[in-house]
């Protein structure tokens, strides 16, 4: 044991870890992620029948999907979908909803302000920070590149 240095041991320990079932995970991610997008498409097509504009339909679709994601998290189903689907459940906007609702529920016993409301963004907070932050940068860059024209 003492003959091994840290690097050697880390490499050795890494080899002892069972490898993920890559193929199965990829297929499941594809099926779950694809299905959620398919449901999104169905919602979109239904909303277009109400003769809403593209932007309203996009927003409304997102809101409905967020509702579905939140609801399934609340009744304790989304963690199972996530376990099966992996990235297929995490990457769609329903996964974003799950990442908000799960900690909010978890910290209910710590109170409604510093529990639910504060912990709501433990996972989704960084998403909003980088998303909104980078969108402002994009807007400013756009102005800089088009200012001369």
């Amino acid at each position: 044991m003492d003959k091994m240095n840290n690097k050697e041991y880390q490499k050795y320990a890494e080899q002892k870890i069972p490898k993920p079932t890559y193929f199965k995970n990829i297929i499941n991610a594809f099926l779950v992620g694809g299905t959620i997008c398919l449901i999104g498409q169905i919602i979109r097509n239904i909303l277009f029948r109400f003769e809403l504009g593209e932007e309203s339909v996009a927003s409304a679709t997102a809101i409905i999907l967020v509702f579905i994601g939140s609801f399934l998290t609340g009744i304790g189903v989304y963690d199972t979908i996530g376990k099966i689907g992996g990235a297929g459940a995490a990457i769609p906007i329903t996964g974003f909803a799950n990442s908000i609702v799960a900690p909010a529920m978890e910290y209910k016993r710590e109170g409604l302000i510093f529990g639910v409301a504060a912990k709501m963004f433990t996972i989704a907070g960084p998403v909003l920070v980088y998303g909104i932050g980078s969108s402002v940068v994009v807007g400013i860059l756009y102005l800089m590149f088009t200012a001369g024209r």
Binding site: V66, T73, G74
Partner: peptide, 29 residues
């Protein structure tokens, strides 16, 4: 440039906050 991004995505964010809060009140993990 400051308003646009958040405006366009406001629906999903507001929905996530509202539904998240409601679900947290209604259910236990």
């Amino acid at each position: 440039a400051f308003l646009g991004g958040l405006e366009a995505s406001a629906g999903a964010v507001a929905a996530a906050i509202l539904f998240g809060y409601i679900m947290a009140i209604l259910s236990y993990p």
